[in-house]
Design a protein around this nucleic acid. Structure first.
Lengths: 334, 334
DNA sequence: CTGAAAGCGCTTACAG
DNA sequence: CTGAAAGCGCTTACAG
């Protein structure tokens, strides 16, 4: 490692015969400074490739120019591409503002990694990529650090800044379409009930029934189906009850459902129709193609990051932002 | 935000009637200090929940306690779970040592995000999650910051610390098995030639042929097949030439190959056999199950992080670490 | 074994 | 418009 002594603000000041204060002002743009002086400083800096020491700046300003992004740490997450894309969106916006992303991984509700990062004051703000009905992350962060959630926060936590796709609306529309196509026996297979998004989707599902004047068959709602065995059992039960259409709350579940149906030689859409609430690459190569909802994860990340930036700068931000969705009808519900 | 004034080392010193030096020594464990004094300090700190300001520490020590992890930023990456798992492994080890992970995303060879992080001196070391035959990341980092690569580095960059799975060996073994099963016409479909891993796999493939005294049919090697159209064409050509077995270099390709064969009603393994060089969840639910290689991504991440820790602490580290693999034979090559 | 003091490289009232 | 000086909260020779 060449120990190429880094040039400091003092070096610049000395070389130019001005004070460190002046150099600092020229760089930050804050405080009165002569136009000519500033230009001289800037030119010198440019030429000698001076880079301010962000750590020193951090200490002086009590700002880190880092955000923490809390990712879900469950290994079965197939909706991974969603988080990935979202992360890219965040990173893109953060980078423009010279912010960097510190990663925290949260398995279930284990927030020890987040706690350490906050205790060490390594970030100016936090983005939660997933919210729970009972959310230790939120409880921990409240009154402590500015933060924004991706996905809605439970009503139990008022005042939380949240950016979400309109899951309720999306699921309501998809369910309505299915009901209108005269599929009456619809099974809903979903994941962890403690995820807020599961609740939102479920609500949309119910509202669609209500709108159509139909009643939900509660025995066809399978939640917390977070492993293969459970999903397989749910499919079996649904088939026994002559299900018309199986609605999957995420693509991991859908992928398993498709496998199960294939093993049973149940034809889609001839025997049973299938749709998923989220379309990832996992289903992309499936035959038949699968009807699903489409969300722009990248945009979600970008909007979220921009909101957090506003928040830490002390600007007014909307408490809740809802992003649009698309329903993509494919062969599986023909 | 409650502005709960943080307690500093000076507060602790004053409360205890000792110097800041003493407090600092008690915490770090460096330098001579009376046992009793140390315990008194530690007890006070514990009780009052004093947390050192990492930023101040950073400035004083020129250490950040952050590592940068450079992730591939291509959106078509289906091997995502691999990077994800790997990241978890890194994070786990880093966390134990109170290090955090700063994320940099690198699309193709665009290293601007990495450059900024380094220029801002935000990290003590870097982990590259993917290497290229011509690698701007490596060229940029050399002689500048300690770094470790996941995956092998091109021979053009001697001295690079690299942790890798034994891709060459794994592919050699898998290919050998296939050849021994009397499948003579084997097509190899792979991705970006500029990825070192592609080269390693290819080498293993060739060595297997050599070992068996067979010659490779070059017209059956399809590289740089990084989009659906190309893969489809490769499959078509392979079928025309009466291929026995299609070997896919990654699961994104394999997934597409499977779709293509399904559309053509080509039966696996009856008409054609298929194997993949990596087994992700993407193929998990496929029928038939797919023969593939299995690597422990999490362990790879852990070993890599531990190596980087050693490196930044100035310890001697092995230049190259090769991790084992497993060949998992399934129905698709029966 | 312990402490006073300088230093890490910035920012920011305050004064002029 | 510009600068001297104090301060951010640690660490670390140096001296005792």
């Amino acid at each position: 490692m060449e120990e190429q002594k880094n040039i400091t603000i003092a070096d610049v000041a000395e070389a130019l015969g001005v004070s460190k204060t002046t150099v600092s002002r020229a760089i930050s743009g804050k405080g009165r400074i002569g136009k000519e002086t500033r230009e001289r400083v800037l030119a010198y800096i440019e030429e000698h490739d001076y880079k301010p020491n962000v750590i020193a700046k951090s200490l002086a300003q009590s700002k880190t120019y880092n955000f923490c992004v809390v990712m879900p740490g469950e290994y079965d997450v197939v909706d991974l591409t969603f988080f990935q894309e979202c992360l890219f969106g965040i990173q893109e916006i953060a980078g423009i503002m010279e912010y960097d992303i510190l990663l925290s991984i949260c398995k279930k509700n284990d927030i020890s990694s987040l706690e350490r990062i906050i205790a060490n004051r390594k970030v100016d703000g936090v983005i939660l990529m997933r919210t729970f009905v009972e959310d230790d992350q939120i409880e921990f962060l409240q009154q402590k650090v500015p933060f924004v959630t991706i996905g809605s926060a439970s009503a139990a936590y008022p005042g939380v800044i949240q950016i979400d796709h309109n899951h309720k609306g999306a699921c309501k529309e998809l369910t309505s379409i299915i009901l209108m196509k005269q599929m009456k026996k619809v099974a809903l297979i979903g994941g962890d009930e403690n995820h807020v998004v599961t609740q939102s989707r479920l609500r949309g599902f119910r509202e669609a029934y209500q709108k159509m004047g139909e009643t939900v068959d509660e025995s066809m709602i399978f939640l917390n189906q977070d492993n293969h065995v459970l999903v397989d059992k749910a499919v079996e039960e649904a088939l026994e009850r002559k299900v018309d259409c199986i609605l999957c709350m995420d693509d991991a579940i859908c992928s398993r459902v498709l496998k199960n149906l294939r093993e049973r030689h149940v034809k889609i859409p001839a025997d049973v129709r299938v749709a998923s609430f989220y379309n990832s690459t996992v289903l992309e190569n499936n035959i038949p193609s699968i009807t699903s909802l489409k969300f722009d994860a990248r945009e979600l990340g970008m909007v979220t990051c921009r909101t957090l930036l506003d928040l830490v700068e002390g600007q007014e931000v909307k408490e809740r932002t809802l992003l649009p969705y698309e329903v993509v009808l494919k062969e599986s519900t023909k």
